[in-house]
Design a protein around this nucleic acid. Structure first.
Lengths: 208, 208
DNA sequence: AATTGTTTCAATCGATTGTTTAATTTATAT
DNA sequence: ATATAAATTAAACAATCGATTGAAACAATT
């Protein structure tokens, strides 16, 4: 009757809502009831379309992964003609954007950032498909900066330092916001943080 | 009858067990049933002695806080005669030990580290009583190294970078262990990590 | 129009959780 | 010894969650 407007397929609707809920609440705290309510679908819809909660979550990951890798190509915004320092800057900047931007394109990054501290059964696959390649990419940049003679272990530790800084100010937001007496990050905050992490890390990588 | 051996008071027994369970599982995943089972007490004991789960958790925090501040004086192992760089080294070393050591003295640190990424209702108090003082202490050391002219914001960001590195390799263990194809940290690992974070951060703080 | 397959729905199941109760046991004090 | 209080227990309660059911509504096909 009101069919002039083509309704969004229910599966897609659920996936989008579920992605937001999982990113907000984490896998465990997110409830099927909440997702269904926000989607305006019946409680049984998720089990009908996806089987169970876990398979919904896996489908959500696949769904947003597509959006993510299509917006952020695997190059991490890095040109091979860039200097190593430029490459690291771009890497850090891109890495932070991937879980900080508003909108759907950053949802995969948010879900991924959660897996670091609240792992689910999907972590094994996520590590091999995304996290390890990201670390390898970062490690290669670090090696360019530090020189080929740098031992693997040292490179690995430096990669941890960089990722650790980035994830801290996302995952430890409850503490950060209280310390600052200020809720949320402004765009200016994010720019400053990004710039700081780049500077701090570039200096940290200097060989002595 | 068998009263030659003085039994440990039940309240204390529950507190110790509960601390371990909360540190292992986090507040939400820890169940009263599990704590009671491990303590060998009846299911109703916790509500009888502590009222409810939340007040048990708060009491656990207070209990282990005592052990912690008595083992780790608020000085963070820092002598005022140390150089600023030595102070930072000692701070990072102490900070990491506080949530990595085995045994009961590190339990408060483990609970605190959890609050960064899985906050509970206790976070507000914990921030004011422990986390903020720790940041202030760290900030004062950073200021000594970077010079008095350094803007507050810059010092704050550097403190975040240092804490972020330390917490990463504790809270992101699921990912780290998979990346390394190795479960757990050896004492050697911990020493290397600590040494690395100290070096990386000292270089990051250098003014240019 | 009848049949078939798909989707939607309210209702409910089964398991887990924090919490409470009411009865019993143990300890303490008079 | 007896009375009172404290501690302990098994059982159940209430709320929440993921999952399932079976009937109804809808769409598509024959």
């Amino acid at each position: 009757m009101n069919s002039k407007i083509k309704e969004k397929p229910k599966v897609e609707l659920i996936l989008e809502t579920a992605g937001e809920v999982f990113a907000e609440q984490g896998y465990n705290k997110a409830t099927i009831r909440d997702i269904c309510k926000r989607s305006g679908v019946n409680l049984a819809a998720i089990n009908y379309y996806f089987g169970d909660k876990e398979r919904l979550y896996l489908t959500v990951l696949k769904y947003y992964r597509e959006l993510a890798i299509q917006k952020y190509p695997l190059t991490f915004g890095i040109n091979e003609t860039d200097t190593p320092e430029e490459k690291l800057s771009n890497f850090i900047h891109t890495f932070i954007c991937r879980f900080l931007e508003e909108g759907k394109t950053a949802l995969f990054g948010k879900l991924l950032a959660r897996e670091f501290t609240e792992s689910t059964g999907a972590l094994d696959v996520l590590v091999e498909d995304f996290i390890r390649p990201t670390f390898i990419k970062l490690s290669s940049i670090i090696r360019e900066i530090m020189g080929n003679k740098s031992p693997d272990k040292k490179v690995e530790l430096c990669a941890m330092s960089i990722i650790g800084q980035c994830l801290y100010f996302r995952n430890a937001r409850p503490v950060v916001f209280r310390l600052r007496h200020k809720e949320g990050y402004t765009d200016k905050d994010i720019k400053e943080i990004t710039k700081h992490i780049i500077n701090f890390s570039l200096k940290g990588l200097v060989n002595n």
